[in-house]
Structure formats: C-alpha cells, structure tokens
Design a protein around this nucleic acid. Sequence first.
DNA 1: CGATGGCTTGAGATGTTTCAACCCACGTGG
DNA 2: CCACGTGGGTTGAAACATCTCAAGCCATCG
Lengths: 197, 197
Amino acid sequence: MRRLEPLYRSGDPFLSLYAVRAGFFKTCVTGESGRGQVTGFQMAGELLGFDGIGTEQHTCDAIALEDSQVCVIGFDHLEALSRTCAELQHQIHKIMSREIVREHGVMLLLGGMRAEERLATFLLNLLHRLRLRGFSSSSMLLRMTREEIGSYLGLKLETISRAFSKFQEDGLLEVKQRSVRVVDEAALRRVTHEAPP
Amino acid sequence: MRRLEPLYRSGDPFLSLYAVRAGFFKTCVTGESGRGQVTGFQMAGELLGFDGIGTEQHTCDAIALEDSQVCVIGFDHLEALSRTCAELQHQIHKIMSREIVREHGVMLLLGGMRAEERLATFLLNLLHRLRLRGFSSSSMLLRMTREEIGSYLGLKLETISRAFSKFQEDGLLEVKQRSVRVVDEAALRRVTHEAPP
DNA sequence: CGATGGCTTGAGATGTTTCAACCCACGTGG
DNA sequence: CCACGTGGGTTGAAACATCTCAAGCCATCG
C-alpha cells in the first residue's frame, strides 16, 4: 500500500490483525471533541489492530507513513489456530500484554515528563527498535513530521522543533530535517533520567 | 486483603490474574527516574495483572485502596481452559483489547486536555462504571486521594483541588471531602467536549 | 486534645502554547 | 531548467495554564 493510505479506520469492522512486513505506520485516535492523538508508530515486524477485538470494530486509524506492505492475519483463523497450539496462544497473550505495558510507558511520559525529556525518550526508543532490526548505526531517518511527533508526545510541533534545536546546540544530536544523528547517546539518556523533585 | 496492602508489586513473578470481587485498587508504574504514575483504578468485577504476561514479571504495583477481596486466576490454568473453550478464549482477547483501548483514552486525556476537562472526564467515567454496577445515583465516595487522582490525570493535587472548587462554584458538583455529588451532569459532559482549536 | 494526613487557597515562578513571520527543500509545470 | 507554489520546519515574543511554595484549615484517630 502507498504512503498516507489508511490500513483501517476507526469504525471499520474488525476482521484481522496486520503484521507490518515493510514500511512504517502511525495509529491515531479521535476523541468526541474532535481532538486527535497519535497513539503509536509501528515498524516492520510489529502488529497492528488489537484495538478492534473488544468492540468488533476498529477504534483508531492506522495510516501508512511510507509505502508499506502488511501481512493480513484473519483473527478468527488465528484464534482457531491458537486453540491447537499453546505456544502460539501464549505468544498472542504476551504481545498484547507488552502493548499494555508500552502504553503504561507512554502514560508515564505524558503524565510527568518535560518536553525535552519526552523527545529524548522517544528518540532512544526509536533507536532501540531500529537496532533490534539490525540498523546498528546511530543515524535515522524520521518517517513522521514534527507535528506527528508532537501529537504522540502531547506537545505542539513548535515545541518539538525547539527541543531538536536545543539538542543540536548542546551537541547531543545532528539534525537535518528528517535525518537525525545521535552524537552523544549517553547525554541523551541522561536527559531522560534527570527527574525534577 | 486490607487497605493499602499490595496485591502484587513490580518485579513479582507473574502467575495469576486477579478479579476484584469487592473493594477498590489502583495500579501504578515507576519509571527509571523514580517518578511514579497511577495507571488505573479498578473496582469490583474488573481484572488485574495483564501487565505481567509479556515479561513473566509484573511491571506495576497493584495496591488496595480499601479492604478488598480478589479471586486468584492461575494464568496457566486459564490458558489451558481457554484452549478448550473458544468463547472463553475470545473473552480474554476482548478484555485485553479493551484495556488497550482504555489506555488510548487516557493518552488522549493526558496528551491534549485541560485540567478541568481531565477531571470531568475522570468523574464521568467513574460514574459510568458505578452505574454499570447498579449504583444509579449521582453521588459517589471517592476511594482515592487528590494526589492519586492528580497522578492518574498528569496533574498536581493542588490543581485537582482547584478544579473541584471551580466545579462547585459553577454548580456542577457538590464536593465534601471525598464525597462528590454530580449536580449538573450535562454541564460536566459539556466540559469534556469543548475543545480549544 | 493534640497530632497527623489530607485538603484548600493564594501569589509568584516556570514551561509550553499561541501567534506570527520567515525560511527551506522539493516537486511541478511552463 | 528555472520559477514558483506548497508543505514542513524554525524562531521570537507575548499569553496562558499549571506548578511550586507556603500558609492555613479540617477531619479523624489514638
């Protein structure tokens, strides 16, 4: 599928999970008040669609941020299969549990952290996930806009932009538009650890 | 179990889920930086412990906010059982999915709402859950402190206190310590809907 | 009855948002 | 091939919401 195309939208009937085979997605919810929020970014190897199981309808939008390929996993089929394979069954539970825990982390971030702390946490998380996939360098090409990062982190795009500039001034990053090189990873990590009393 | 006793703590090995039979709990995570955050409140009929499946260890603390009783559900047992009963299996998936969706809602709240909007949303959600349990009145007795509400909503206790006072002044609530009577539910709902552009 | 934990309220400090202007990179069509 | 339009990004100054600090109040319990 092509960039900016939706994989599914809030309200669509839930039939399948999707494994990202290649590409990059964002998921976003829209509240009653029309306000929207990015709830996550998904890259190759990650699963999408768990939000729909509870209500038989998807409750958020999944949008491709670059041309992508997904593997469709019929959920009925998956449930049937997992009844015959305890290992598979357990894996499903683990993946959903990890999603819950990941969101706890986001709540911690949204609930108490400063802008720079949020961005540093976000960048380190991205870096970590890229490394798990063998991109062991410290450079990355962001697939999302400042606005999308801001939405995810509960900040405005201007604030994200300022934080990037600050990190660059302080020699933690080299930022050229969407490309980010982590110059001083230890210092970036320190930013996420310093807690104001 | 008695008030303020932990049902489980972060780091405890994961063995079981817990169904709240009676009483009231909070769950809270603690980040690297020592910062803590309440991630949810659970009342009778709700399930606790899903955070532990992914890592075989609990990743947050569950604390009783009043004397409570839980039903322990061995997870191995539950998985075995659900392999023989598609209906049960599906229920488990649904419950976990709903937990994920609930957290999306909290992210929306933490990411973009104003203090009063957050508190109004929180109170309406509590009211809703109490009504599902047959407490159809518009009064409730809060089981948590202002500080715990604040932690959950990403605000300081003083801000919660001020928001309560404001709602009282405006005739939306009657607040006497922990007891809250919703006087104008429609107006409270309106507070949650007005979005600043 | 005094101590304690929880709650309220005020005033000033702080961090983020808002508004506005401007810049830059990229792609398109003349 | 260049000019221009557009979406995304940067930066500054002022407005705003929440936090911080501090003082005081109220209920509960030993």
